[in-house]
Design a protein around this nucleic acid. Structure first.
Lengths: 220, 220
DNA sequence: TATTATTGTGACTACGAGGTCACATGACTA
DNA sequence: TAGTCATGTGACCTCGTAGTCACAATAATA
């Protein structure tokens, strides 16, 4: 986490700093992202970085927590109990994610990288924990659907959760491939990752949801 | 592709060379895999590597084609027309993949990395093409199922294909996470990635197939 | 055996990374 | 104004990488 020196920085400096490194980590994975490059771009001394943060990993984790907090504001208010079906809930969550991407493309791309399988050894521990927590949270919800008789009972909630997560993580790729989206170009141009009409995107998402329903819904 | 010098090498030398670099590329991504490290491990001169191959990328692509050819021997004979349903066909393919992993763990891990989202910039072009070809091949098969009235008609074959691919790529992670498998450790010990009883693994696969059936099969 | 062609070698180059530190600069206090 | 403390600086250090090349060693041919 940042040293006091960083917290005391005037806003415009701190924001420029954050933005510069967010761009770098959004465009490159942890290992390839270069402190030296950003430092040149921002016209600050390399030593400053290490007066603000312990090291590269410390800086990365700070940015990660920043992005997560921003995304939370979009997703946290969405509660299962406020929706008639799991799929209304799920769809709303996904839509909020797209809205987040629309308004915070850098943070969105940063977080998109976390879902990637291959990650630097330095990060692997954090990512594994992160994924396990996400999975566990979802298992609880899915088990709830099973108990309500809304999801099938012949397959374990765990298996269904992994299934759902696979598809969820894949949807981003579906969108990217089907609409020939170049994430890196969009990032460079300051556009959102999914620089397309939201309704078009949601159509593709809805297709995947229809398939998910077929897979998980209880059939009498 | 290798220079003539490499082809003329005595078998034991060529095999040791190949194995050494397969291990390195199985354990590290393209960027992190180090020619220098392997060279030390094999007790050969660095210059030799560049008498066998143009450069690191050339060497990597050769190993990739090697692994693909080996895997082909397991999968190529499996034809859709030999199976009653798509799912018998799909299951057999997956089982063959596990068998391949059992007998060629190094090659299996090497290829597993290709499915990963994050890849070195040097490789991105190759991987994109590779994925597109795989997708296109599958779309043809899936469309065939639709035409036969076996798969649902209300969703495009393309959307169903992406759905199937998402889940297929995810199954590896399901197995890894559910059975707490450490790929890197297994590789280091010379074990297969999925060092578990094949029938146990296939049980988990079958669960996912049941869900896939629910999603894609035509319901009257 | 002498000559030529092929293969093996490892110190070396050029590069770029993360991180350090003695010093310069600026701001606030006495 | 003089002194103190926090912040900014960039040359420098260590490390590791891919790739090179003049030379040594071996194999093949005459």
């Amino acid at each position: 986490m940042p040293k006091p020196t960083f917290e005391k920085l005037p806003n415009h400096k701190r924001e420029a700093f954050t933005k510069g490194f967010l761009q770098e980590f959004a465009a490159n994975n942890y290992d390839k992202a270069s402190v030296s490059v950003v430092v040149k771009k921002l016209n600050i001394a390399k030593g400053s970085v290490y007066q603000y943060f312990e090291n590269k990993l410390d800086l990365y984790l700070y940015l990660k927590s920043l992005c997560e907090m921003t995304k939370m504001q979009y997703v946290l208010g969405i509660k299962r109990e406020d929706y008639a079906t799991f799929w209304d809930y799920y769809r709303t969550q996904y839509e909020a994610g797209i809205q987040f991407d629309l308004e915070h493309p850098l943070e969105s791309k940063f977080l998109y990288r976390i879902g990637e399988k291959e990650n630097s050894e330095a990060l692997r521990g954090f990512m594994k924990e992160w994924k396990q927590q996400a999975i566990q949270a979802y298992i609880g919800i899915i088990q709830g659907e099973v108990d309500k008789g809304l999801f099938r009972k012949d397959i374990s909630a765990e298996a269904m959760t992994y299934f759902l997560v696979s598809v969820s993580l894949g949807i981003g790729d579906v969108l990217r491939d089907r609409y020939h989206i170049d994430f890196d170009e969009n990032i460079k141009d300051g556009k959102p990752l999914f620089a397309l009409d939201k309704t078009v995107l949601m159509e593709a998402v809805d297709e995947q949801i229809v398939l998910l329903k077929g897979a998980l819904d209880f059939k009498k």
